[in-house]
């Protein structure tokens, strides 16, 4: 029995990492094609049918680039920072259930690596650690652009994390659990939570865009001011690690949004796991759509918006939900 469990765990780990890496590759291709269409051009369509092999060509190109370290850089921290970024991005998805539990060889197999009772807290803990990758990478490069980009990234991410933490608490209060599978099962019984928690969902999604440093919150890598922000001095696969981490974070934010507000794997007719991927795909499309549509914030607008609008709004919605759940109203 224990052997079977270990084999299943190994299979799940390999599958999850493969899904995330493949998801990254094709999210990036999807983004480049869609941005092309939004701008009335075709996007990359030369490598393979319709450009489908483009990610492989990109990956090969990245691996075969020279790995440079700037003079005066701290070698250990410089090499460690992209690893932290990618590692935390991969870890968050361990607690997200990708589908309904399936029965295999007399075992009930949950489609996540771990399903602890504090699943949501673990996901947030790992995503918070991701800040270290950005700020250490910016600091260790000994470049003014990198340092500013890294510091900006950390200030932005911690500012928006507060509102995010407050927003998801409404879901915790309603569902009575922090276990992500429990949250989905609650939605199976009582209906999806996006409508009763619409304010929380909007705040979560806005902060999610800010946490992943996507347009219109891509101040850390604002190319007109900071060249490329915290990864200015990185080359080859270390640079690619940051990009992989950014796209995997997009998938993660979409996955948590789907799990908390849109019923996770629930849906009619199709198998649960397909529904989960369809919903994530819709969120990724919205991410790309927003990037193609909106201009970038100014830095003071970004910080003021985070502290003076999102935090009070999240607090008010949180208090309203708390009053409703506790039965005061």
């Amino acid at each position: 029995m224990i052997v079977l469990e270990i084999v299943l765990l190994v299979i799940k780990i390999i599958l999850l990492i493969a899904i995330l890496m493949g998801g990254f590759a094709y999210t990036m291709l999807l983004e480049r094609r869609l941005l092309g269409f939004f701008q009335l051009r075709l996007g990359p369509n030369r490598v393979g049918p319709g450009g489908l092999l483009q990610p492989i060509a990109d990956g090969l190109k990245m691996v075969l680039k020279e790995d440079l370290m700037p003079l005066g850089a701290d070698p250990f921290v410089y090499r460690l920072a992209p690893v932290i970024s990618l590692f935390t991005a991969l870890c968050v998805d361990a607690v997200i259930p990708f589908g309904a539990p399936i029965h295999l060889f007399g075992l009930t197999v949950t489609l996540d690596i771990a399903n602890p009772s504090i699943g949501l807290l673990i996901a947030f803990a790992f995503s918070s650690l991701g800040v270290y990758g950005l700020v250490l990478g910016g600091w260790a490069s000994q470049n003014k652009y990198s340092l500013l980009g890294g510091i900006r990234a950390s200030a932005q991410i911690i500012s928006y994390e507060l509102a995010m933490g407050l927003a998801v608490m409404g879901v915790l209060m309603t569902t009575h659990t922090a276990n992500l599978e429990g949250i989905v099962l609650y939605q199976k019984a009582h209906g999806w939570l996006w409508l009763p928690q619409i304010g929380a969902f909007l705040i979560y999604f806005i902060t999610g865009i800010a946490e992943t440093n996507r347009t219109p919150f891509d101040l850390p890598e604002a190319e007109s001011e900071l060249v490329a922000g915290y990864h200015t001095e990185y080359s080859g696969m270390r640079f690619a690690s940051y990009i992989i981490a950014e796209y995997i974070n997009m998938i993660t934010v979409s996955g948590i949004a789907v799990t908390l507000f849109f019923g996770g794997w629930l849906g009619p007719w199709l198998p649960p796991i397909i529904w989960f991927f369809i919903k994530i795909g819709i969120f990724l499309f919205i991410f790309i759509w927003i990037r193609a549509t909106l201009p970038r914030f100014r830095y003071d607008q970004l910080m003021n918006f985070g502290w003076k609008v999102l935090v009070p709004a999240a607090l008010i919605y949180f208090l309203g939900t708390a009053a409703f759940v506790s039965g005061i109203l």
Binding site: I17, M62, V63, L64, K65, E66, D67, R79, P82, V83, I84, L86, F87, L90, S235, G236, M237, R238, A240, S241, I244
Partner: peptide, 15 residues
């Protein structure tokens, strides 16, 4: 995995 991905061009890239 993160370490192997990040350090791969250090081993495979030109110098």
């Amino acid at each position: 995995v993160a370490y192997l991905v990040a350090s791969s061009s250090q081993h495979m890239g030109p110098k």
